[in-house]
Structure formats: C-alpha cells, structure tokens
Amino acid sequence: MSRRKFLKRSSCLALGLFAYPAYSSAFSLSRTEDVIIGHNSHQYKVDLSWGNLDPLRTPVQDCHEMVQDSKGRIVLLTNHTKNNVIIYDKSGKLLETWGTKYPGAHGLTLVKENGSDFLLITDYERHQIIKTTIDGKVIFVIDYPADTGKYESKEEFNPTETAVLENGDFYVADGYGKQHIIHYNYKGELLNYFGGRGKGDGQFLNAHGICYDDRDPKNRSLLISAREMNMLKRFNLNGDFMESIKVPGALICRPVIHKKDIYFAVLQSKNASNSDSGFVLIMNDKNEVVSCPGATAPLYKDNQLDELYQTVRLFQHPHDVCIDDDENMYVAQWNSGQTYPIKLTRV
C-alpha cells in the first residue's frame, strides 16, 4: 500500500467510517488495480498526471533531459523556446520557467560549485555548450572545438551531453556530430579529446550521453552511451578505453547514476516494428541490468544478456530519467506528442 493510501485509510479508520457499509462501497478507490511496472528491486507505479501544464502557457516540444537541483526541485529542459527550462516541485507543481534562446536544448547537467547550483546545457542547433546559473543567467558559452583540428565548421559539432568532475573539469559528448568526447577545464579551456565515429572499442556511433562514475573512489571513470551500438562504454579520465557493457536491443540514452545504480531512458527497442518502442533500464552496482520498466525482464544466460524489448506501449521515446531523493523517477520523452514527463513512483 502506498504511503498516501495508507494515510487516507488510517484517517478514515480513526473515524470508524469503514465500519459503515455504505461508505466502504462509495469510497472504493478504484475498480481496477494500479499497474506496477519493472522487475526485482526496482518496481514502480505510473503517474500520468504528474507535471501536466497548460500547453498554451507553458508548452513543451521534446522533453530532453531532467535533473533535481540542491533544493529538491525538478528541472526540465525542452527545446520549446517559449520556456526552455521548466522547474517543478516533486509533486509536479510549476514553480518557474526561463530560457528562450535554446532551440536545440538537449543536454542538461547540474553543476554544484561552492554551495551554488549551475547548469550545463548543450544546444545542437546553436552548436554550443552554455553554462548558466540555476535561474538562467549565462556564465559562459563554448563554441565548437576548432583547436582539436577535428572540426572545420560549427555545423559539424552537435553536442548532446556533458559530465562534470569535482574539480570543475567537464567532458562534452558530440553525440549528434563527429562523436568526439572533448575534455575542458572548469574555465572551458580545451584539455583533451578522444573517441570519434567508428565501431572500434574507443569509438562511438551516437555517443548520446556521458556521466562521471565515482561509485568506486579508487577507479573513477566516465560512462558513455553508444546508443546506436546498444552499448555502454567505460573510459578512464584520460580518455583511454576500459570496457564495453552490452545492452542488446536497447538504444540507451545517457547513463544517470543515483546512489549505486545506473538508470537509463531507452529511446527505442532495436528490432521493434513501431518506432515508439522505448522503455527504462536500470543497472545495479555490478553494471548488471536488474529491471526494465515497460520491457522484458532482464535475463542472463552464460553471462550474456538476452535481447531486451518493449512489452507494453506505455512509453513512446524516453529520452532521459531523473531519480529524486525519494527514489521516484521522472521520464522525459522525445517526440511523444509534446507530452510532459511521466513520474514513476517506487513501490
């Protein structure tokens, strides 16, 4: 029983109302059961009403990414230039909006510096990375990395994601461009680059997302999704390839680390006949898939994961997930008919 239902029922019981037969039938909460999705340790109820706003006042185009800020607020990035950033509380109530100049708003990363929150936004239409304060004031803008010698024009650089280290260094994934990972210091000065388009170990097809994995303090690393390859790749902080983790059938967007687990929005099932065949995927601290809400249960045979695919048409094109401090999840979707995020409540 959810906490909310428990409280409601407790207060009713205190008044002795359940003893009255007419009440119990009139107050039947629903004729059907709440659906639960997911597997093993990670199962959820689905809240389709969370965060729904008036589309005339606060519209979304694609809901690309979400983060939770230090105040516990849920920050959504959309490529609708009426309000690129929409900030909710955890109940889905609108708190504020800002941003009108990010037509290709795609990647959103929270940066905590000296007790203040900042955001790193990647914009694939502007071909830039923009650092802002949490309320939208621009701190710096980074153009395409001409100094790498890998880019002839800004149009070749279409950044999708960033990842930030404790010292402020950050990495940018050029996931819709030439597939390089570019390493900058906290001031935005170029330090290194690696990757590039290809099927080799250290290369990518659609390096869509990147995150900093500090779960093992002795082996801090970068996790980078190669979405088209249905693979997560690990690199050390110098850009040396370490390992690949296969997720057959799953077009994984960025890895999102929450506590010891990694969460992914999966844009599509690779071999589905319908394009809107996405789901959500969760790995444990050993990088094993433990739950796939909306898809097949993960099954390993001889250490090989069976192909994953959508089993119910709940999600369309999930593009990012955000896990809040209550362990609930928010799923932002691309190309889903301008719908607002879906909240998954952990059970």
């Binding site: 059907t32 809240d47 065949s277 695919y309």
Partner: peptide, 12 residues
C-alpha cells in the same frame, strides 16, 4: 494523481 490502471495501455 492519476495512477495508471489495468487495461489502460496495450501490450506491444
């Protein structure tokens, strides 16, 4: 809050 109920969504 409107939690998803049985029979609202189709199988793949």
């Amino acid at each position: 809050t409107r939690l998803l109920q049985e029979k609202e969504i189709a199988l793949a």
